[in-house]
Design a protein around this nucleic acid. Sequence first.
DNA 1: AATGAATGAGCCTTCATTCAT
DNA 2: AATGAATGAAGGCTCATTCAT
Lengths: 213, 213, 213, 213
Amino acid sequence: MATVEILRKMPRQRRARASMDFVLEAAAQVLEATGEAGFNTNAVAERAGVSIGTLYRYFPDKTAILRTLAARETETHRRTVKALLRDGHPGVARDRALIRAFLRAFSGRNQARRIAVSAMLAHADHQALAAKFAAMETGITDAQGRPLTPVQAFVLSRAVHGAMRTAVLEGADFLLSQEFEDELVRLGRAYLGYPTSGRVDGRGSRSAGRSLS
Amino acid sequence: MATVEILRKMPRQRRARASMDFVLEAAAQVLEATGEAGFNTNAVAERAGVSIGTLYRYFPDKTAILRTLAARETETHRRTVKALLRDGHPGVARDRALIRAFLRAFSGRNQARRIAVSAMLAHADHQALAAKFAAMETGITDAQGRPLTPVQAFVLSRAVHGAMRTAVLEGADFLLSQEFEDELVRLGRAYLGYPTSGRVDGRGSRSAGRSLS
Amino acid sequence: MATVEILRKMPRQRRARASMDFVLEAAAQVLEATGEAGFNTNAVAERAGVSIGTLYRYFPDKTAILRTLAARETETHRRTVKALLRDGHPGVARDRALIRAFLRAFSGRNQARRIAVSAMLAHADHQALAAKFAAMETGITDAQGRPLTPVQAFVLSRAVHGAMRTAVLEGADFLLSQEFEDELVRLGRAYLGYPTSGRVDGRGSRSAGRSLS
Amino acid sequence: MATVEILRKMPRQRRARASMDFVLEAAAQVLEATGEAGFNTNAVAERAGVSIGTLYRYFPDKTAILRTLAARETETHRRTVKALLRDGHPGVARDRALIRAFLRAFSGRNQARRIAVSAMLAHADHQALAAKFAAMETGITDAQGRPLTPVQAFVLSRAVHGAMRTAVLEGADFLLSQEFEDELVRLGRAYLGYPTSGRVDGRGSRSAGRSLS
DNA sequence: AATGAATGAGCCTTCATTCAT
DNA sequence: AATGAATGAAGGCTCATTCAT
């Protein structure tokens, strides 16, 4: 796990682990409440009910808090996606579930998540991240069953994610609406060559073939 | 022009105008070289070959530099898009030109642009920005000539932009490739209901109807 | 006049003299409006409708503006007092006139005057100022016609002035009231040994002897 | 106590309390040595032998140092006055004690005290201060036992204080002399209607009735 | 004489990080 | 292990003053 390298010391005792969690939870709250500007170690420590010294016992520096936060959030989401891909049957229903998972994750604690992720991006190795994402995109085929080229996989995944992300950032009121979900699903399916005329919903669709991820 | 309100004093003398440009150019360079972390007024002034006092003569505070930078970049791009929409004939060729314009603008000075834009977003009124973008999306129709719903317009525009933006951020090697361009065009056209089987290029396409923007 | 030494150049031409007056008037206004905190050379120059360069043509530095201002205010008041002492007949009526002159001067532009004077005090030679004041206090006698000792003259003059000054600083609502004036007069006369029972006004008093200054 | 609200954090550890005192002592010294112009946080911290960060641990901003200083000085004096009024018998002796207390307090560290007090005045609510002072002035009666009007109480208190203050500011050499003290006492008593012919000292006076405060 | 762009010393303040207790 | 006082580099910004035009 990426977390290991970031941390100064992997806490074994229960109290120690609790301290770490307090810090991370506090970090998310501070981020949420004050944005990146108000995110400083003293504020986080205080909110966590932990001394600044203790905070530094577990995180080598400020960025490590952000990175750990981002890693955890990403990890959670990654797991959800993985589970859906493993257990669900390909098709519109699963596509919808994937999109819904993302929207939920994103909208839940959006400010905190956004900043954490952007901090991760700022400090991380973009190539590595790209590779990680790429792993999710393998095995997708279009309506004719042909595998996607890497560029196609990229466009598909980033297009859908981009639309969702912007909706979060702009605070779009339709973020959790049925129509938005429908259109995102339709976007993916149209790009893959499926007929998408009219309504697209989880019930009516009998379509076979690979679905989005 | 939005620029006016941001600035402290509109310079009239030639020397003064030069100073302002030096500052903005220096700001872009500093952003490019060190990211947002290294972006501080002293560094910008030094790189601009200008005293810190002079910098503050033209910009009321640090964020104003960022905002002016973002405004200028955005303005340039907005003009290009507007010109293309006004002068070009709807169709694949124009869609391609629009996408190309964006990729060029984005890839030129990407770090600087990214940060400037993100700073703009951080300080700006999201609703207002959204409204501005919305204006560009009016009048689009699908393959059947039906106008898009607001949500559809949003999804289309953000999907294409999102894919492009991510490619820039990830430093994708296919950023300026023909295939990437093709796929972006195809994404938009598929969503609008145009048949896009096989190759999509500026030459073969006879398609009529409204195109992307 | 003290003014001479402070200034960089004694302006002879009419336009130049006007510039100087503009600066001083502007200085008083700025002081009045923003207090000492907002009193800076640029603000004064701008309010004076004069360039900062011109300001520096007449005043060697910022403090010179304050000092000149204080000198002028003091001079004006000094002249008034002198005239009253020369022309008026000793007695309650003149005492009242002296007090009134002070209250008027003080209340007119009080913030500006206070700061200017305090600036003067900060930079000036206290002994010299004291000597100047002392000159006003000579020749005073008590009710029995005995001349005051230097300490008595000091106490009398500073007591009356102190009460007036504090009333200005505290923004007392009775500042210009009849009662306040009466009490100040009574204070001086009581100290000098005059009977002051009951009403004290300019009309009823037949008292002879030296009066306040 | 007013002090509490001003401070950022009430230090509990011994080292911490020492730091605070160092800062205040240093502040007084800097004020004394350089006046308000030289009073800056870096100078104070350096003189206190404390880092600038430590200074800001205890004082939210520069003005808080001044305010705390003024509050402490005022508080000390206020306590002395209160004790004298409570324990001493009304009369010349007590009047003299009150005046002596003020002169001592004022002359001790005069520049520092003056500036601290003036800073307090600059930032404080004048009405509130006036009210506070007013409380000290209640219950005074004249030689005939009649209570003073508010204006009379004001004149009496400010006159005496004004004379003392000016003596401090001008560095009068008679500041601590017997004569000056005598005259101040006499000023008050004359205003209240007591016979004050000839010498006024603590021994000879058998006068009853309310005395100054 | 006047202008005003430019300068830069210097000030206030924050906050990541250390280390004695 | 935990605490939290202390540190000080760093950065945003102001404003008195100069000088080329």
